[in-house]
């Protein structure tokens, strides 16, 4: 018994030392991140963490990576004099990727939230975003508004802005909530009939509903659940945040951003973001 206790104590001490050391390292990240701009200039590239989806980062028919965020990032990197290197990440572990230095930025329709501000610094928002409700077309006449969904099964990505929107909505909060591991899988659950409604980004919903597996899905019109904004995420304390804000202002002045928004049919949401900035 004594030996067991000794062993357990040893394990606990080891764990405490480890967490203590990790805590110390976190504070260090804040100080060291001051050199992010210099680091990427020395490396000649900014590594940008993305997931592939239309209209932010996707491929044209020739297999070239395009999209609003793709071209926006390329324009900024050109002004910085570095190459934009896009790296596909697992969205679930984006904070760890950024903290580990595997990527320099999260730039992929990233929604600004209070919780995320602990893990990253946000640039000024460049697009607005909304959460919308997606349902099966068969239920089009039954689910015309949120207050008719109180007895439905509702799904959203666990921890996403969609889940927050459900909890914040008086009617939807009464419904049965079932979490999904990604927004796409929330839609799959909906298509499979495992849920009656899904709350996801309007960007993603517009680009996927009515296609492939999601052929029989539709967006419930006239419901905008939560107003949100997209911004770029850099490491906490990084000097890239201010620099990219400055360059973005230049791109707005020159009309480059407006052209991009028009190309990807995001003009309304770009203008809304501009209004909020003012």
């Amino acid at each position: 018994m004594k030996k067991l206790f000794a062993g357990l104590t040893l394990v606990m001490v080891a764990v405490m030392m480890f967490t203590g050391c990790a805590g110390g390292a976190n504070t260090a990240t804040g100080d060291e991140a001051g050199s992010d701009l210099a680091t990427i200039k020395a490396a000649g590239q900014m590594v940008i963490g993305i997931t592939e989806y239309d209209p932010m980062n996707y491929y044209d028919e020739d297999g070239t990576l395009i999209g609003f965020d793709t071209e926006y990032a390329q324009a900024v990197c050109e002004k910085l004099g570095v190459e934009a290197k896009f790296q596909v990440i697992n969205w679930k572990t984006k904070e760890a990727e950024l903290a580990a230095g595997n990527i320099d930025a999260i730039w992929n329709g990233l929604t600004v939230t209070e919780e995320r501000k602990n893990d990253m610094d946000f640039t000024d928002p460049y697009l607005t975003n909304k959460q919308c409700i997606v349902i099966n077309k068969d239920n089009a006449s039954a689910y015309t508004s949120a207050d008719k969904m109180t007895s439905a099964i509702i799904t959203a990505e666990s921890g996403s802005a969609g889940e927050t929107a459900i909890l914040a909505d008086e009617s939807l909060a009464k419904a049965t909530f079932t979490p999904a591991d990604s927004q796409k899988n929330a839609l799959v659950a909906l298509a499979a009939g495992n849920a009656d409604a899904a709350v996801i980004d309007i960007t993603l919903a517009t680009a996927s509903v009515g296609q492939g597996t999601y052929e029989n899905l539709m967006i419930v019109e006239g419901i905008d659940l939560a107003d949100e904004q997209y911004a770029i995420g850099f490491r906490v304390g990084s000097d890239l945040t201010a620099e990219v804000n400055k360059i973005t202002d230049e791109l707005i002045e020159s009309g480059t951003m407006a052209k991009l928004a028009e190309k990807y049919e995001l003009t309304d949401r770009f203008n809304e973001a501009l209004q909020i900035a003012e």
Partner: peptide, 18 residues
């Protein structure tokens, strides 16, 4: 997998990718 891939960067500031 996550320990091997992230700890070098997060704790030791030396990302495996570098």
């Amino acid at each position: 997998l996550m320990v091997v891939y992230y700890i070098p960067g997060i704790v030791f500031h030396y990302s495996v990718l570098k």
